[in-house]
Design a protein around this nucleic acid. Structure first.
Lengths: 334, 334
DNA sequence: CCACTGAATCGAAGCGCTTCGACCTTTCGA
DNA sequence: TCGAAAGGTCGAAGCGCTTCGATTCAGTGG
């Protein structure tokens, strides 16, 4: 194994000088720096992560806690993970994956053993039970999602209230008067996942403000559930002409069910979704949608973690503004 | 921070004794062991990962290299990742995520800096360019997929040749005489991803053996592509009554397109898929399918990596046998 | 009864890195 | 011309852990 001592003797400087070249924490003459860098390249030197961690108490690893229940929003999670790992690398950090299943003990372990310098947690519930543990870790933490009581923890999320609002507003602008929300599965509401409620609130509030009739339905991710929810909508509110779908998993099923009922999108029914961009465009009808900015969330989360690691400690709550893109699935009301 | 010295003095033993209690590498009297374990719990001691790694040159971390191109098989990747991280934890290891984008330099970095003790690589191509680098790392490596020249690297994969064979055999057993394969997107074939070819070979060989007429079509993951491939099939082979679909991404589109053509599944057309179990059951028609055993692959890969870390070094190629489950989408030919 | 063996424990030497203080040159302002 | 400041480099002290003898003490067979 190539050590810093090997590099040092190759470049005829002391190990500490090599270290300073690497970290930039002291000024080094150009000549020396170049000599050292050359030795590093020639020998293929990579600092030993453990040694570095021991000496500096920085592992250069971020932990990311993901929900691995077979939720249907798997692609979104994946997109998020992808963006987080890429962003982390941009800060010369690696990404360690933890599952929600490991529970508080897993968080404690990872923090106490200094495997990870900071922790990013996805899938935050309204009354998130992990908040106390996370606060006790004395490590930077970033939550993806906003619990009711974030205390001093940093959070980042899509502004779901605004998203709900934007969807309704779009339909209102198109002249629709009666709309319905097809929301996440009942399980999500029961779990008290915070975004579901926030979206619904935005949806309802804006519907009221704009004088729309608005109903809302939780919908499990299955063809059957979609079918009965649409039955409900059309029975209870037969004049509904706009659907807001806050449930990626049922989009395909919903479109196909509408078609089978002879309802054309957007002529007979406008559909506005909340889903990742590529999902919106890959449906049978390109969907007008508020994008779930998974990649941006991942980037933000990493950035906020790094900020904290560098001592800039404003426990910030960052809400990303929703952006609605008009596509083929929404049109003025007949 | 709680160190091993704290535990040692609390339990009134030397640090080395604590270490031996933890590692079990020397015999410790029951009384002492208990005392130490109690101190550990009471103080909430977790060994410092860096220090441990420095002293033992074991980081207890496995690296997993995943493809993060927005492939449509994202859920499969995720399932795999989930199973890998869970399995790794069972061996007291953590999982570090790397992207394919990091390239050979990333692999070298992770290996040389001892961040990861072993490396698992997904998305292996037939003539996998990373094989040389991986061999040079002098670390345990496990490939998910089998390149043409695996040299001494361990591999694990579904036996795709057998899978192709099983699908055709099933249709043959049901009396179908003319079948078609809807394969992965042309991009996959071009990339020379190894499983595509192996599946096709199994499919073709068995079709010949059983005296079936068999055609095969690459199919991009879009509604349009599916539509034209089905046009092709029905024009070139109008008597086709069985479809083997080796392309998770197009399943939904394919079923919906068949329905629009007035072709009923399975009465007019039997469909056999290769896809994850939950995907097979969540379609409009429950699909007869060979399951992609993502979870089992993840487990195997981790297990093989751990074996190598423990010095049992048979560079093994493990092929998991396909299992076909009959569901509603296949039936005897009319 | 002695020499030996094995079990249980300890002390100390690193593992490879960062970082602090010290030291030696230059440079520069007074 | 001298002293101070700035720039550049080095040596050594850890960081917290594992592991290799060394040591002690019982028990054992001859």
């Amino acid at each position: 194994m190539v050590t810093i001592a090997d590099v040092a003797s190759d470049a005829r400087v002391s190990p500490s000088t090599v270290s300073y070249v690497l970290s930039g924490k002291r000024s080094i003459s150009l000549a020396t720096r170049r000599r050292v860098e050359q030795s590093i390249r020639r020998l293929g030197y990579h600092p030993h992560a453990g040694a570095r961690a021991l000496a500096s108490s920085r592992m250069n690893i971020l932990a990311l806690v993901v929900p691995l229940r077979a939720d249907q929003n798997v692609p979104v999670v994946m997109q998020f993970v992808a963006s987080a790992v890429t962003s982390a690398r941009a800060y010369d950090h690696d990404l360690l994956l933890l599952t929600k299943d490991e529970g508080p003990e897993g968080l404690r372990r990872v923090a106490a053993s200094s495997v990870a310098d900071a922790i990013i947690v996805m899938d935050i519930e309204a009354s998130e039970p992990r908040v106390p543990v996370l606060r006790s870790l004395r490590r930077p933490v970033v939550l993806i999602g906003v619990p009711d009581q974030p205390f001093e923890l940093a959070c980042v999320d899509l502004d779901f209230a605004a998203a709900g609002s934007v969807c309704v507003a779009h339909l209102a602008d198109l002249g629709h008067a009666e709309v319905a929300l097809i929301g996440p599965s009942p399980a999500v509401y029961e779990r008290g996942t915070s975004y579901a409620g926030r979206f619904l609130r935005g949806f309802t509030t804006t519907a009221n403000e704009r004088g729309l009739l608005a109903a809302s339905y939780a919908c499990a991710p299955s063809y059957d559930a979609v079918h009965s929810r649409l039955d409900d909508v059309l029975r209870e509110h037969p004049d509904t002409t706009g659907l807001v779908v806050h449930n990626e998993a049922v989009l395909a099923a919903l479109l196909s069910d509408l078609r089978q009922r002879g309802l054309r999108v957007p002529e007979d029914m406008s559909v506005v979704a909340v889903c990742p961009e590529d999902m919106a465009t890959s449906q049978a009808v390109a969907l007008t949608a508020v994008a779930v900015p998974a990649a941006e969330l991942g980037r933000s989360a990493v950035e906020m973690a790094m900020r904290q690691l560098n001592g800039e400690t404003h426990p910030e709550i960052r809400l990303l503004s929703p952006r609605l893109t008009e596509r083929a699935s929404s049109a003025p009301r007949h």
